[in-house]
Amino acid sequence: MSPDSLEFESLGTTCSLFGAGTPPGALAEGRAWVEEMHRRLTRFEPASELSAFNASAGDWVRVSPALEALLREALRAHRISGGLVHAGVLHAIIAAGYGRTFSQGPTVTARDTVTLDPVPLLPNMLEVSPGAARLRPGYGIDLGGIAKGWLADRLAERLGENCLVNLGGDLFARGAGLDGRGWPVGFGGTTVFLRNRGAATSGTRRRSWGDGLHHLVDPRTGRPAKTDLAEVSVIAASGADAEIHAKTAFLLGRRAAEFYLEQNAPGWYLAP
């Protein structure tokens, strides 16, 4: 027996949806929802809600439930990662050369001409209240580091009791899968059966464009992270948690990552 499936490009990556016993049209509706979230949350489109929010730094701005939830998720990610998973590094990412979609190629790197300081703690630059949020002037939000796992969790809720949502490698498996063992997912060189769990991978084997230049900024330096890991994969209770733990372990580096993963989530890492 094979599941219903749908693969498409969105969020700057490849997305795959699988369902067992999902209603007709559910996967197509799921795709439409992902594309709507992309239009709303991308930093690469000036007309997106996120771009408008970043452009209004300093003022309280009305935000949609989706953006409000993700901004709160950004604060949660910052808190449980000890400040390492930081959505407020937009300007540092742009200074490193990631100023447009990755498929369009890097932009001018300003790292040698711009003084990049450690990024302030996220609660010191972002305030969220019901229906509104305010960003400190001079800073910007990039949700690329936390959104896909969170969106996978939310979409799995919408698709039904037995489904697998994979948004560019950050995924959530809901239900028992096709044969009751869980959904088979490739993870660290083996296949794991995931049931009501998320998985995510963080690393620099993609979205890197030069000597030490990549998309994962270390908020402690304001520069692309220097780490002795190439990638980290994690399994957690949700796609959002998996994404946070994978990024945290990656930024910590090999020695601390081993301890961190033992304490927080089953994981696997690859050293270059």
């Binding site: 599941p3 499936s5 896909k148 948004l167 560019g168 490698g169 088979p184 993870f187 993609r206």
Partner: peptide, 11 residues
């Protein structure tokens, strides 16, 4: 031995 349906990976 089981073939996965999909993978977690760097995006």
């Amino acid at each position: 031995d089981q073939q996965p349906l999909t993978f977690t990976s760097v995006s």
